[in-house]
């Protein structure tokens, strides 16, 4: 596993928060911005890390885990939010908790125009689907915001999403030669 960089240290904090809040099923369609968090979850023998083919699978997985008494978190990039819309009716109508951690594309510094439409509509789409949305713009805000959202989701049985802005994650520019 790679050592945490200054910008990725929040990932260790989020992993520790998952442990503290008994979240032990973590599903994802990978995003580069969550690489370290995914690695931490995959290498944690007490966690079940589930790679999805599409993000709405993770909404249904979290519902099943809750029915059986386990807590799940769902990680994705903003483009995956659109895939989840109809499936979000499941935790909504069943009054189930759902925690989503979403890394943003299609905003500050974006070089790929194809990312912009879904990135710009992500907060609106989530809120219209009954999800409570928190946005994080700096590394030091990540853990307090995630902790509050975890508590809201699992103590008050809400659907909650934390959006990690592109300003925080860093905007790549393949056209400029970024890796």
């Amino acid at each position: 596993m790679s050592e945490p960089t200054a910008t990725a240290q929040w990932a260790d904090g989020v992993h520790a928060l998952f442990k503290a809040h008994r979240v032990d099923v973590v599903s994802f369609v990978p995003d580069g911005g969550q690489k370290r968090l995914i690695e931490l979850c995959l290498s944690d023998p007490e966690m079940r890390a589930v790679t999805l083919t599409t993000e709405e699978e993770g909404v249904a997985l979290a519902a099943g885990a809750f029915l059986g008494g386990r807590r799940a978190a769902l990680l994705m990039q903003s483009s995956g939010v659109g895939n989840c819309i109809n499936m979000l009716s499941l935790p909504h109508v069943c009054n189930m908790p759902l925690f989503m951690l979403v890394t943003m594309r299609g905003e500050w510094g974006e070089f790929n125009p194809w990312q912009v439409p879904m990135g710009q509509s992500t907060p609106t789409v989530l809120e219209a689907s009954g999800v409570i949305v928190y946005r994080v713009n700096s590394a030091e805000e990540v853990c307090p915001t995630v902790e509050g959202a975890l508590q809201l989701a699992f103590q008050s049985r809400c659907r909650a999403a934390v959006l990690l802005s592109q300003k925080l994650v860093g905007a790549k520019n393949f056209a400029r030669g970024d890796q």
Binding site: A60, A63, G64, L67, R70, S89
Partner: peptide, 22 residues
């Protein structure tokens, strides 16, 4: 029993979540 009335396409994943939890 847990019958779904919507969430089309999701029933197998609900089953996976339950199977992992139980």
């Amino acid at each position: 029993d847990f019958p779904l009335w919507g969430a089309m396409g999701g029933v197998a994943m609900v089953g996976l979540g339950l199977a992992l939890a139980q």
